[in-house]
Write a protein that binds this DNA or RNA. Sequence first.
DNA 1: CTGTATCCACTGCGATACTG
DNA 2: CAGTATCGCAGTGGATACAG
Lengths: 144, 144
Amino acid sequence: MATTKADGKAQAKTEYNAFLAVCPSRQLLDRISDKWVVLILCALGGDTPEPLGAPHTPKAMRYSELARLLTGVSQKMLTQTLRALERDGLLTRTVTPTVPVTVTYELTDLGHSLHHLTRDLRQWAQTHMDAVLTHRESHDARTS
Amino acid sequence: MATTKADGKAQAKTEYNAFLAVCPSRQLLDRISDKWVVLILCALGGDTPEPLGAPHTPKAMRYSELARLLTGVSQKMLTQTLRALERDGLLTRTVTPTVPVTVTYELTDLGHSLHHLTRDLRQWAQTHMDAVLTHRESHDARTS
DNA sequence: CTGTATCCACTGCGATACTG
DNA sequence: CAGTATCGCAGTGGATACAG
């Protein structure tokens, strides 16, 4: 990524700056474009749409809560993603030295601002799922 | 991923339906959460922020144009992503049988609605990049 | 409870070469 | 120009076991 001295032809590859490549947004985009990131932000943002007897609107969550909520995520991915988000200042990690140690995660203001977007994303997905599925079917049918 | 016959305990793995997992939105979320998808949508949406003498506000783009704009993308990924987006009805693929065949891609209404979100995403990334980088540095410094 | 570390399988993805 | 097909590596990510 770094611009080397001799960047003649290699320029196109080493620093693909076209469009929004070398632009800082590109790096964040890669981070945001992560399945678990979106889900964690939604969870910590209190989106949990659980129709069943779920508390709803929780902001701070414990590690085990997240693990339970995001079924299917391995602890490796969960920890890894949480660490990355903490590093970027999107959420805070608070360790309470109780008997069995307690760790809670909470969105920062920055995290909240991004949460609005992931929330819209989730909402869009739900709203237009039918249209997509329908189009997908007809497209597959067309594909002999 | 397919639900096997004996899915007793394996249930947690085969169908991670908690939160928004089994929910249709989950599938679309996976698709949206793709680096190239976001970039293609931004490109076709006319976001190209090229400060240099670039046309700007183009809606329909040719294959080669996209390939040139999204420097760093392999034709495999570009084609693959375009196909997927076409299948989902987010964009249309028009083949004009000229001498050297011409293929243009254009967002559908559905694609445009999603483009608004990817546009916000890109904007957010650009706006808050500094904050993230700053926090990342101080965090790394703290990490002895 | 909340992780960290290791192993390992899968496949995403780039590079390359070939077709219409 | 606009793809498709094949190969092969490397990173992603799951399962398991261990630690503070």
